[in-house]
Design a protein around this nucleic acid. Sequence first.
RNA 1: GUGCCUGUAGCUCAAUGGUUAGAGCGCCUGACUGUGACUCAGGAGGCUGUGGGUUCGAGACCCAUCAGGCACCCCA
Length: 483
Amino acid sequence: MSSPIEAVRGMRDVLPDEQRATAYVRAALERTLAGHGYLPIDLPIVEQRELYLRKLGEELVGKVYEFSFGGRELALRPEWTASLLRAYVANMQDQPLPLRIAYSGPVFRYERPQRGTYRQFTQVGVELVGGPAPRADAEALALACAGLDAAGVGGYRVVVGHIGLIRELLVGLGLEERTQGVLVWSMERMRVDGLDAVRARLGETIAAPPPGLELPAGLDDDQAAAWLLGMLDAMRIDLSTGTRSPQDVVARLLRKLRRGDQQPQIDRALDLLSRLGQLRGAPAEVLPLVADLIAQSGLQSAAYAELRAILALLADHGVDQGRVEIDLCLGRGLHYYTGLIFEIYDGDQMQLCGGGRYDDLVSALGGRQPVPAVGFAYGLERVAAVAAAPPPPEERVALVAPVSDEDYAYALDVARRLRLRGFIATVDVRGRTLATNLRDAARRGVGYLAVVGAEERAQASFVWRDLASRDERRVALGEIADW
RNA sequence: GUGCCUGUAGCUCAAUGGUUAGAGCGCCUGACUGUGACUCAGGAGGCUGUGGGUUCGAGACCCAUCAGGCACCCCA
């Protein structure tokens, strides 16, 4: 015997029992999305690598399965949103807005496998294209909850943040865009590792040029860029592996080298953000504190009003307020978010669902006009893992047992007739004895056994045995028509 | 990507560094030529995840690798 071949790491076999449970949950989710007017769509699993390079965020970009084939740079989709908006730009710009689209299918991410974390998993989700804040945000959030309710998930927690609010404050403080970005996506780190860790990271990625790298005096931008490229090349730094073009990298580096020191603003921002980040909890408690903080800083925030409006609408949607929690540190790794972001956890810390608003993505993917959009996705396997068990199947299952080989053809005929009456019917293919067939049927939980032998064949009948009650009677073939 | 735990039959697990690696369950056959959950008898199934090393001798010890799990990181 040759050695068995293992499944690829992070990929798993879903056996019938689990598949049944997953399909049940999937149907519940899809039914809910459809019931809210979201039209199912299907899109390719393989996309151009480039689709994911720009807006995905470095963390997730590193997890994309990429490959070259026939001279093309391709990728397995790590999420649906980019594909969906690509398809929107390609095929759906003539559709009336808002457009409600639902999807469901496999995505791939190269991550360390764990329970509830696989390299291939199934996302079920929606995008509400052309739906502006705050109503579309509240609709999406409420829908996410409705799906979990339908799937029989209880005790979940909805955590809400708002990237727009953070961005606004940073703009108000006069920080440049690149610095804003790093700060926004460092907020989670700030809570876990502290202010100093973020300051250090900021130093790495923004503030300090590589030690010893000084621009020669008197170069114009083009000359300086050429000089930098030469330096980087001499240092054997390969720029082609990153998500930006070498020209881009050099341009940024150049700006960095020539930029004035932003340290005072950065310190102020860090201070504000760390205090903002400590405000977590029920909206009724946290929102006033956020308002205070904004007022104290002498800043304005339209996003704050938007967040309040979303939460108020959420109550109108009937979402249990006790489940909702504000966490302004929430920084989802997908960098295309611009406003609301949210995550839903089950009681045991497992993330079941995530989403948010991304108003710039349509433009970034070449749409004719900017279109606001919001969406979310469930991790189907995770939802299924915490969902209520599906009800037992109600199918009537029968096994047809031919007594001898001569009865096999007749057994097939009986099985056909049973199927016409809605039975799930199988015929023994192993030529087993009746006793063995009975034992087998009992073990599998089959409801009925049809025994066909020479006698039954002669009379156009079969013996119909109810496995549970052990009642047995002879049934004429013609009789089945009334079942 | 980081740290830790674990890989022995289809499954759950045994086996002081020392014969030919065992048990339970499951599977197959028969007792039982047309009637199930019990029983009895027999059978199949293993290069101990893989590859190196230490040793007279390795399932056990060491290294690597692959896979699974747990905690991070991140996400669904």
